[in-house]
Design a protein around this nucleic acid. Sequence first.
RNA 1: GGAGAGGUGGCAGAGUGGUCGAAUGCGCUCGACUUGAAAUCGAGUGUACCGAAAGGUACCGUGGGUUCGAAUCCCACCCUCUCCGCCA
Length: 428
Amino acid sequence: MLDIKLIRNQTAQVQAALGKRGLYDLQPLLDLDDKQREIEKKRSELQAQSNETGKAVGQKIREGADPNGEEVKALREEGNRVKQEIGALEPQERELNAQIEEILLTLPNLPSDSTPVGKSEDENVEVRRWGDELIPSSAGRLPHYEIGEKLGIMSFERSVKIAQSRFVTLIGAGAALERALISFMLARHTHEGYTEILPPILVNSDSMQGSGQLPKFAEDGFKCDRDDLWLTPTAEVPLTNYHRDEVLTDDQLPINYCAYTPCFRREAGSYGRDTRGLIRLHQFNKVEMYKFVHPDSSFAELEALTADAEDILQQLKLPYRVIELCTGDLGFGSAKTYDLEVWLPSAEKYREISSCSNCVDFQGRRANIRFKESGKKGTQYVHTLNGSGLAVGRTMAAILENYQQPDGSVKVPDVLQKYMGTDTIRAT
RNA sequence: GGAGAGGUGGCAGAGUGGUCGAAUGCGCUCGACUUGAAAUCGAGUGUACCGAAAGGUACCGUGGGUUCGAAUCCCACCCUCUCCGCCA
């Protein structure tokens, strides 16, 4: 959520920054804000008057005036009159506040100054590449889902029977590889100072709003209607809301969390795309990293977070590149985002496997997460960052394709062998 | 699912219609004492909104209601805890 004060006082700058993402007209919001403040001012003056009257009644009675006498009665009537005036203003103010809130909740974050300006993903900027020399020749490379089915370690057909399309069932070494990846990633992150969290993966609507999925992206989520609970689309949701409505102290920051969770997404609007394989499923596993940090350090923390995600790919020896998203492709809550894209030989393409974002104070304001700086008055909103470290299914896909061998087997990456108890996956 | 208890400031815990944003204790900050620390003593210490400021307003789980006036009374809802049932 954007700061209404910022919008009010620096309208031109905010308008320009939003303009880089698309078209947003702030004028209706500003008009509502003007009206709201005018009414609030009036109402609070009347309220003061009413408080005075109330006090006067108490005063008189304590001084021995007849509670039913003329003097007190006159004051009561005065009180009633003021109360009526207030009663007329209150619904107006409530309505205005609701409208303002509604607009604020649908405005995306401002892109950072350093974010490249562009309309679509075509204008994203490649920042760096790693592991070019590891890219295998693509001759004879099968797509991961064919490898998986040949090895007997994944089944899409049976998953349709159990659930529907866009689900996978992993079998034997496939299940073990998924589990190995989760363990490996968590071990790496906890070793580097991230505290492991295993949160609820059903979350309420307040949580979905706090991290930015609601109200705008209700279509994308799976919901349990009877309970007002949603299946988490990402661990970012429970992790953000873990500290919702809290006031932290500056010596607690930065807070680093990592979490493994299943993630659930409808993937509405992508019906024709990635219909086969592990790339786009309704349910997938992800290890997420999340930071609550001091505003002064959030952009440096984004570099660190991205490096933490990259380290997983480097340890797995998977070639990848780092993309900085342009303003037109930036996520709703993000001010600056790096995507990590891993090389998929069968497609001869890089595919997104991680997204690392600095949301600055956007989620902090939505979820009301503040911190107190010792020696300073008042509170400030924390800055939050999130990054996949990594999407597990896509990592599995990348391993199967990059590590496949001429005989049809798949070599297990060195760092995973101790988790798998084997160095090769073969058809059984 | 059934029965009961309860939700007050960073924490603990008073407060059952008026001067209560809220006693007291702990914690925290500053000061005094001390070589330093502890202990002790003194002062201070919530958040948000409006306002240039003075100041004003709101907030005692949430939302309504009664009243000139509500933490306190009434209604609804939410949540937590205990016991019973069920259950991995």
